[in-house]
Design a protein around this nucleic acid. Structure first.
Length: 424
RNA sequence: GGUGAGGUGGCUGAGUGGUCGAAAGCGGCGGUUUGCUAAACCGUUGUAGGGAUAAGACCCUACCGCAGGUUCGAAUCCUGUCCUCACCGCCA
């Protein structure tokens, strides 16, 4: 949520920065609601002050046993107006808040301008692109030959867009999760969290999934709760409505969770294989820090997301999202993309974002500054990483001429002696 | 699912219709004392919004989980709701 005071004082700047995202945002309407709301509140406050004074007087007179009917009548003469103003103020405040919740974050001043994904600059590339003496297979074919995933039976149970990992595939999925969690907790200073996967509505509002993207979420209990679309939601919201001492920051958390997404707007896209699923596993990194450190923490966070990929020996690149490709709540985002030899394309496996105080303001997450003032924290998160696409890149990259897949050594401790995925 | 108890400031916790934004303690901040540490003592310390101002000082309003209601007046009474805890039932 943007700061209404900031919008009031810098309406042109807000318009300009939002325009960089593309899309229409009615700042004028917010300003008008704000002016009307404040006018209504001011009148209400004056009447309340008068009522309070008269009520106090009535109390004092009654204590002395004197008559108070005259003063009671005076309060009654405008009590209807107070009720009216209360209703009006609440309505305007609600509308103003709704308008603010539907307005995305401002792109960071350093976020590269651009209309869409084609304008995203590549920041760095890791390792060289692997080459093969044969035509590399894509992951669907590999999974079939190696018996790693049963798509047909998954559909029987859950419908299209679901996968059922089997045999060494299931083992590899679990191994990767453990590898990622161990790396981040043992070497990178993250505290491990295993969060709830069912989320209350206000937490979904807190991180920005609601109210705008409800159709992408799996709702349960008549919209009172939702299946987690990412661990970002439960983990960041752990600290909602809290006032942290500055000394407690930064907070660095890592969590595994399955992620549930309807993918409402993308039916038919990437339907083959496990590139886009309604349920997938992800290890997520979350940081809560002060505004002064968030940009540096963001760089470190992105590096933390990249680290396991280089340890696995994978070819990837890091790009920065331009203003037109930025997510709703983010002010600055890096995406990490893995190379898929089978499809000869890049797969997005991580999105590393700095949200500034946008989420913190929505969820009332603050810290006490050195000057004693309460300020909103900054929140960040990065996938560290999404599992299915990592799975794809891994088996496609390390496939051999004989059809087997030779696993990277770093996974050895997690695979129980399995060094190679064999044909079945 | 049933019964009962409860949600008050950064934290603990008192407060059953008016003088309560709210006792007390802890913590924080400032100071005195102190060889250092500890302790003691004094003072100070909620949040948000609106208004005023060059900026402060300042004024007003709201907030005792949340939403309604009763009343001239609600932390306090009533209703609903969310959450927490305890016991019972059920259950991996």
């Amino acid at each position: 949520m943007l700061d209404i005071k900031f919008i009031r004082e810098n309406p042109e700047l807000v318009r300009e920065r939002l325009a960089l995202r593309g899309g229409e945002y009615d700042i004028q309407k917010i300003l008008e609601l704000d002016a009307a709301c404040r006018a209504s509140e001011t009148e209400l406050q004056k009447l309340n002050a008068e009522r309070n004074a008269l009520s106090k007087k009535i109390g004092a007179l009654r204590a002395k046993g004197e008559l108070t009917a005259e003063y009671e009548a005076r309060v009654k003469s405008f009590s209807a107006r107070i009720t009216e103003l209360e209703t009006e103020s609440a309505r305007l405040d609600g509308e103003r808040r709704a308008a603010l919740l539907a307005t995305p974050n401002l792109p960071h001043p350093l976020c590269p301008p651009g209309a869409n994904a084609s304008a995203n600059p590549v920041i760095r590339t890791h390792a060289v692109r692997p080459t093969y003496s044969f035509k590399p297979l894509d992951h669907v074919t590999l999974c079939e030959k190696l018996g790693l995933i049963d798509f047909e039976r998954a559909a029987k149970v859950a419908g299209s867009g679901f996968a059922c990992f089997t045999n060494a595939g299931a083992r590899l999925e679990r191994a990767l999760i453990n590898f990622l969690l161990d790396l981040q907790t043992r070497e990178r200073g993250y505290r491990e969290i295993s969060p709830p996967f069912i989320i209350r509505r206000d937490c979904m509002v807190g991180t920005g999934q609601l109210p705008k993207f409800e159709e992408d979420m799996y709702g349960i209990d008549e919209g009172a709760a939702f299946l987690a679309p990412t661990a970002e939601v439960p983990v960041t919201n752990l600290y909602r409505d809290e006032l942290m001492p500055a000394s407690a920051l930064p907070i660095k958390l890592v969590a595994y969770s399955p992620c549930f997404r309807r993918e409402a707007g993308s039916t038919g896209r990437d339907t083959r294989g496990i590139q886009r699923l309604h349920q997938f596993d992800k290890v997520e990194l979350v940081k809560i820090c002060t505004p002064e450190t968030s940009e540096a923490e963001h760089e470190l966070l992105t590096a933390d997301a990249e680290e396991p990929l280089s340890r696995l020996g994978l070819h990837f690149r890091t790009i920065e999202l331009c203003t037109g490709d930025l997510g709703f709540s983010a002010q600055k985002t890096f995406d990490i993309e893995l190379w898929s030899p089978g499809r000869e394309t890049w797969l997005e496996v991580s999105s590393s974002s700095n949200f500034g105080d946008y989420q913190a303001r929505r969820m009332n997450l603050r810290f006490k500054g050195d000057d004693g003032k309460n300020r909103f924290c900054h929140t960040l998160n990065a996938s560290g990483t999404a599992l299915p696409r990592l799975f794809i890149a891994l088996i496609e990259t390390f496939q051999q001429a004989d059809g087997t897949v030779l696993l990277p050594e770093v996974l050895a401790p997690y695979m129980g002696g399995v060094e190679r995925l064999l044909l079945c």
